Deep mutational scan, measured.
Amino acid sequence: MATKAVCVLKGDGPVQGIINFEQKESNGPVKVWGSIKGLTEGLHGFHVHEFGDNTAGCTSAGPHFNPLSRKHGGPKDEERHVGDLGNVTADKDGVADVSIEDSVISLSGDHCIIGRTLVVHEKADDLGKGGNEESTKTGNAGSRLACGVIGIAQ
Rank of each mutant, 00 (worst) to 15 (best):
L68A: 05
T138M: 08
A56I: 08
I150L: 06
V120I: 12
Q16G: 14
G73M: 04
S99R: 14
D12I: 11
S103V: 14
N66V: 04
S99Q: 04
D53M: 00
H44P: 00
R80Q: 04
P75F: 13
T89E: 15
H72Y: 02
G109P: 14
H44M: 13
D102M: 11
G28R: 08
R116M: 00
L43A: 07
N132A: 07
G38W: 08
G86W: 01
D110F: 05
A56H: 09
V104N: 05
L85W: 05
G17S: 04
T55V: 05
A90K: 07
I105F: 06
D97Y: 15
R116E: 00
C7M: 05
N54S: 14
V95S: 12
G142D: 05
E101G: 11
G139I: 03
L107E: 00
N132P: 09
G13W: 05
E41F: 05
C7Y: 02
A146N: 11
H111E: 15
H111T: 13
D91Q: 04
T117C: 09
E50W: 04
D97I: 13
S135Y: 03
S106A: 11
T40I: 11
E78R: 14
G94C: 12
N27P: 14
R116H: 00
L43Y: 08
G38H: 06
G34T: 04
N140M: 11
N66E: 13
G83H: 00
V95C: 11
K31D: 15
L9P: 05
L9G: 00
V15T: 11
S60C: 03
H111D: 11
V48I: 15
A5W: 04
G34N: 02
H72T: 02
S135A: 08
D91I: 06
I36F: 14
E101S: 11
H111Q: 13
R116S: 01
V8F: 05
A5N: 07
G28M: 03
V120L: 12
I18N: 09
D53C: 03
G73K: 06
K76D: 10
E133P: 07
C147P: 00
V104Q: 09
D97P: 06
D125P: 03
T59P: 06
H64K: 01
A2I: 07
D125M: 03
K4G: 09
I100R: 13
G83Q: 00
Q16K: 14
A56N: 08
P29A: 15
C112M: 13
L39V: 08
S108R: 12
A96R: 06
V82N: 15
G115T: 00
E25M: 05
A56C: 06
